[in-house]
Simulated assay, not measured.
Amino acid sequence: MPAKDICLSRMPLVAIVDDDEAVREALSELLRAMDVACRTFDRAEAFMAEFEPDRFDCLITDVSMPGLSGIDLLRHQRSIGSTMPLIVITADTNPATRSRAIRCGAHAYLTKPIETEVLLQHLQSALRRTAFRSDAE
Rank of each mutant, 00 (worst) to 15 (best):
D5Y: 13
V17N: 03
M65C: 03
Y109E: 03
P53A: 15
C104M: 14
L86G: 03
C104R: 09
R32L: 08
G105E: 08
R32G: 03
D72L: 06
A15L: 06
T61Q: 01
M11L: 09
F41E: 00
R133S: 11
L59P: 02
Y109W: 02
E52L: 10
T83V: 05
I80S: 10
S28T: 15
E25L: 12
F47P: 01
F56R: 00
E117I: 08
A96L: 13
H122M: 11
L59W: 06
D135G: 11
E21K: 10
R98F: 04
R128K: 12
L8F: 13
D72V: 01
D5K: 12
E25T: 13
A106D: 01
L74T: 02
A91Q: 07
S134I: 06
R103M: 15
M34N: 12
L86S: 12
A108M: 06
E50L: 12
C7A: 15
F51R: 03
F132I: 14
I71Y: 02
L110P: 03
D35M: 11
F47V: 04
Y109L: 06
P85C: 13
Q77H: 06
S64Q: 12
L8H: 15
I71G: 00
G81M: 10
M11Y: 07
R128V: 11
A33W: 14
D18W: 02
D92H: 06
L119Y: 05
A136P: 03
T83M: 07
D20R: 04
R39D: 10
S9E: 10
A22G: 04
I60C: 02
E21T: 05
F132G: 14
L68S: 08
Y109P: 00
V88L: 09
L110F: 08
P66D: 05
R55F: 08
I114L: 08
V63W: 02
G81W: 13
E50C: 14
R129T: 12
A96D: 11
R43W: 01
D62C: 02
D92W: 05
S64R: 06
Q77R: 07
D72G: 04
D72I: 06
A91C: 12
L68G: 02
R98W: 08
A46P: 05
L123G: 00
R39N: 08
M48C: 13
V14S: 00
Q121H: 12
E50A: 15
C38T: 12
R32W: 14
C58Y: 07
I80H: 03
D35W: 09
L74A: 07
R133M: 13
T83D: 13
R39L: 08
H122I: 09
S125E: 11
Q124A: 09
D35I: 05
E52D: 08
C38D: 06
G70P: 01
